[in-house]
Amino acid sequence: MSVSAQMIAEVQPLIPALRRYARAMLRNRDDADDLVQDVLERALANWQGRRKAASLRSWLFAILHNLAVDRLRHRARRGIDATIESVPEARLACPPEQEHGLGQQDVLAHLAKLPNDQRAVLLLVSVEDLSYAEAAVVLDIPMGTVMSRLSRARERLRRQMRDGVRAHPTLRVVR
């Protein structure tokens, strides 16, 4: 099997998760898919030079994470804030036939308010199911920092959700 055929066999199964992380970070489907395409391009070009020690998954997520952070910084500089509310629903999330509970929209809206580094660690660990060591590789920080950042992210999200509920009692579904 040639190098690239092997690469495709290994990378292809990870593409859906890369798309999910990109979309959760950028909150825009087209931007996110653009970014994933950049990741695949870079992965293919640097396939020989990748560090064998790191898992393929953390290598790809690291490329994606760095591109995503660049893109978010670029947006911030240009004053673009594609918040969940301003993005047409179909561009953001899931197939239109899928039912979204109020809770799911809630948690994404609150997630969007976290600082980028906290949102990243929460997504990598909770949603992408990376080990702490893999998350440390992706974020290029020591494992102790992964743990403290994760702890801060969860606590901030918890407080936001708790206070958000209190701040908008009319948004609650009353049965």
Binding site: I8, I15, A17, D33, Q104, L108, R154
Partner: peptide, 29 residues
């Protein structure tokens, strides 16, 4: 327990994305 509920809610809110067909432009095969 709230942290666990958070993680569950995040996974549920985002799981639809991995079930989407990969767009042709991103499909290496």
């Amino acid at each position: 327990a709230a942290y666990r509920a958070q993680a569950d809610a995040l996974r549920q809110a985002l799981e639809g994305i991995v079930d989407e067909p990969v767009p042709a432009a991103l499909d290496l095969r």
